[in-house]
Design a protein around this nucleic acid. Structure first.
Ligand SMILES: NC(=O)c1ccc[n+]([C@@H]2O[C@H](COP(=O)([O-])OP(=O)(O)OC[C@H]3O[C@@H](n4cnc5c(N)ncnc54)[C@H](O)[C@@H]3O)[C@@H](O)[C@H]2O)c1
Ligand SMILES: NC(=O)c1ccc[n+]([C@@H]2O[C@H](COP(=O)([O-])OP(=O)(O)OC[C@H]3O[C@@H](n4cnc5c(N)ncnc54)[C@H](O)[C@@H]3O)[C@@H](O)[C@H]2O)c1
Lengths: 224, 224
DNA sequence: CTCGTTTTGTTCTCCCGTTCACAAACTCCT
DNA sequence: AGGAGTTTGTGAACGGGAGAACAAAACGAG
């Protein structure tokens, strides 16, 4: 009964939080292969990180390993899932059922990772007849009631960039406090609301930058 | 004729590289609105960053601003585009034309940002009849010849996770040196090949973690 | 029970990135 | 021309994360 982590360690570094889902995926993969125990070295290789970093990350959650042995795959998997909060399902709404919205709605990886799409919303009335992945596309006007009825706290924006800010505003007003934004625009939201963005073009541009650097031979100083 | 940046400043920090595309987008947006000049404060607000950080980022490229005045929108836009390498078009191949692959192929934001999809490849022969976004879906076996004929250096993977590593290996063997991976798996590639990943589930899990933290009232130490 | 082996958890150091703060540089007004 | 006002570019302080290195703990053999 020493002063060890009373509830759960507070304030996990952001960089660690971003890696926990990767560890979770690696552990699930190991469990599927029938592995019951693994060392930090094996798990780190599986997750593509340094083993020292992995151990440090895990130490923020508590001491779930056994020295000289390693980690119990299933036990660690549960502990990480609990820490992230994906032991229960999170209801999610997707707004903007165009090209990307369709792909997201049909994506099975949601369900298996602790998220449940409860509604698909679009502003275009022509879309409202459609049924995608077993859900019918509903009017954006239904946002507030859907959020309230299903206790939704996570929203996904897949509308064109010009509409994204107004959609975000409506989401926030409706009570959503976490937004995943696929539109290529900067959203401004009040304190207390988290926004994460996924921007394909930015990723490609970063690759292009490094690619351009490769083509000029390394060490070639064009001086003359 | 002092010893100022002879060619262009070398070694731009990675964090800065990741923000340059955001600045580029903000500048394009300002230019569309008819703005010809802007201060670091305005541009920073537009890009959602601190103005000091913006100025330091831009200083790695050179001195393209005028003290007391600000930056010429069009000029700065071109300088950043040149630094990133998106003044010319980059040919791109997409492998795995399922739900996500279709959305990517139909995405117009590629073309407008310096990328050109030259081929859509899929292993499933049933897909090979299909025409998506004006391109026909071709056999994955054509990868090598397409990469060679079009000088492709960037590949996008949108296959299921189990296939991703083997697709990446084929891409690398064919001469691709930059990969954007949408499959939820860690890719291992040789040195000199860049991989960036986009993982929707990880983003949602990070949001879920913070969301879970919000629900326990801040400062509530459940001790008893 | 003791010793050697294995592997975790943690400490320490270094490096990268962020932010503050200010001098230098430019414009405009008088 | 000179001074006031504005905004850039950068030096310096600061904080957080990455990785090396090691002590503590568990296990098994004898
Ligand atoms: N398609 C891709 O692969 C891809 C890749 C990266 C980023 N994006 C971004 O994702 C977003 C969606 O892309 P897309 O290709 O699916 O576009 P899309 O035009 O096919 O779909 C957009 C959908 O949003 C709906 N919509 C428009 N305004 C709305 C509003 N105010 N409220 C609710 N719904 C509204 C439209 O009716 C349409 O159905 C865009 O911002 C795009 O830049 C797409
Ligand atoms: N759909 C989404 O919104 C979404 C979101 C996040 C991540 N992802 C990931 O993106 C990937 C694709 O998702 P999806 O929903 O489009 O899946 P999908 O099953 O609809 O499409 C996969 C496509 O890849 C093709 N394929 C399979 N093996 C191949 C191989 N060896 N070479 C070439 N092509 C091959 C299949 O024929 C199929 O057409 C998956 O890894 C998924 O986890 C998808």
């Amino acid at each position: 009964m020493t002063a060890r982590t009373p509830d759960s360690a507070r304030d996990i570094p952001e960089a660690t939080v971003a890696r926990l889902p990767v560890y979770l995926r690696a552990l699930t993969s190991l469990a599927d292969d029938g592995t019951t125990t693994c060392s930090s070295e094996e798990l780190a290789a599986s997750a593509g990180v340094n083993s020292a970093k992995l151990r440090k990350d895990l130490s923020y959650l508590g001491s779930y390993g056994t020295r000289g042995v390693g980690y119990d795959v299933e036990y660690l998997r549960y502990q990480i899932a609990r820490e992230i909060g994906v032991t229960q399902d999170w209801p999610v709404v997707i707004v903007g059922i165009g090209n990307l919205g369709h792909a997201l709605a049909n994506y099975s990886g949601f369900r298996s990772r602790g998220f449940r799409v409860v509604a698909l919303l679009d502003a275009d009335p022509d879309r409202h007849d459609e049924v995608v992945a077993g859900l019918d596309v509903r009017s954006f006007e239904d946002l507030e009631s859907i959020v309230a009825d299903n206790a939704v706290s996570i929203g996904v924006i897949a509308t064109p960039a010009v509409a994204a800010q107004s959609v975000a505003d409506r989401m926030v007003a409706a009570g959503i406090t976490s937004i995943l934004n696929f539109a290529p625009t900067v959203l401004s939201v009040p304190d207390g609301v988290d926004v994460r963005k996924v921007d394909l073009s930015i990723e490609l541009q970063i690759l292009a930058y490094h690619e351009q650097r490769k083509s000029v031979a390394p060490g070639t100083e064009v001086v003359s």
